[in-house]
Write a protein that binds this DNA or RNA. Sequence first.
DNA 1: CAGTGGTCTAGACCACCCT
DNA 2: GGGTGGTCTAGACCACTGG
Lengths: 256, 256
Amino acid sequence: MSLTDLKFSIDPNIKTPMWLQIRNELFDCLYKDILRPGQLIPNEKTLVELFNVSIGTIRKAIGALEKEGILIRKQGLGTFVCQHDDQSFLFKFFHIFFNDSDVRHIPEVELASFEMRKANKTEMKLLNIPKENDKVFHIYNKLGFQGKVHSVDKIVIATAKFPLLTKEILVNRHNTIYNLFQNKFNVFITHTSERIKATLVDKKISQMLGIEMGTPILKIERLGYTFHDEIVELRTSYVNTTEVEYIRDQYSLVGE
Amino acid sequence: MSLTDLKFSIDPNIKTPMWLQIRNELFDCLYKDILRPGQLIPNEKTLVELFNVSIGTIRKAIGALEKEGILIRKQGLGTFVCQHDDQSFLFKFFHIFFNDSDVRHIPEVELASFEMRKANKTEMKLLNIPKENDKVFHIYNKLGFQGKVHSVDKIVIATAKFPLLTKEILVNRHNTIYNLFQNKFNVFITHTSERIKATLVDKKISQMLGIEMGTPILKIERLGYTFHDEIVELRTSYVNTTEVEYIRDQYSLVGE
DNA sequence: CAGTGGTCTAGACCACCCT
DNA sequence: GGGTGGTCTAGACCACTGG
């Protein structure tokens, strides 16, 4: 099914501006899997005919989706659907830096454990897990650099959303886990929400981090969202901030 | 000095697009204090004559500044320079929420101490302090809600940038401290950068927070920037995350 | 080279806000 | 009603990309 096979009718008489209607139609195509990450969308002239509006209106719609990080325009090439392969996405959701350094590092990731479980109450609720299939994957990753582990991530995802995920698939990926979600399971993480607390490390995590019990660490609880604000990942990160820090730059942008 | 008194010449032949040249000219006016926070800028038609371009080009320039959070358009009213009074700015740089709650609260702020000191080496360097005037203000604030203190902020600013600041001015403000910076000292905080660690609270801060020594807390080191990436504020926040959390939402926006 | 998006124009009409 | 920004049009020309 291709975009150009569809029929769209944009109504100039309703309150919603035509460019927003077009933006929403395109957005829906992404959700309905007619457009996929990385894909080239039809050029502006084609879209003009498809939606029967002027090119300026098309450009405004595409501009909005570009601002949202959903499309990316490349002059001379075309307009593409964004994907987690892109360089800019690599560090979008990774906020750990070395102390007093502006150098980002790609963390070494080691799978510590992988198992299937019955979802608990919180997991059922947050991940909106169906009763017929109430299993979840629990994944523990160790993150570090030059052999030194600085973080442990606990990831919980529904088997319903990630069918046939295996330990091997996880270990053999050659990119971020969000790239795997996107390419193998067609789950695109659009945004995340994190809550950070300071705690004393417990026995289990201290062993994984290789530090003494009772050391202060960051506990970061992340919700990973996909389209329509659906939560698809629960992640808890435990960070030993002896040698790394959690970083955030905040602009007085309307955005964020 | 008003914007309309100036003469601008936009060059259509150079590589930089005209809309970007106009954006930069307007941005410079802000920096040069010809435009001030809250001020109404000339309407689009006037700008068309001032810059001698078509209205679409003006709109593109203003649109860019709006995206950056520098201007705000209000239909039927005009286009204004953003300021820290605006509702959206209130929580832009305040990231503390109650546990498991989406409700933001306006913190109760109590000045704990205010003094002038000689700047140390780090402060000299980061705040780019001149040798002739190497004094800084050290401000300690206690932040809380319903009488319970959850954070202590240590703020360091150069006396050169904030001349004649007194304890009274600080205490009697009726808005955020960034609003005070903007209105009394013409220093507009454009963005901040934060580095977060987990530590055990020391004696001094534990007393201010009213908790036992050795409790794990967040230590957040913030740099406050103004135009041209000039650092004007050093802030260290100590947060007791027993009842509150540090929150961050991250969209796969290009921006942040 | 042909095809793409990027810039720019010179209008028209609409929706909103204040007086 | 008079002024503001918001939407939309129908073009023209430029700059970049790949083959």
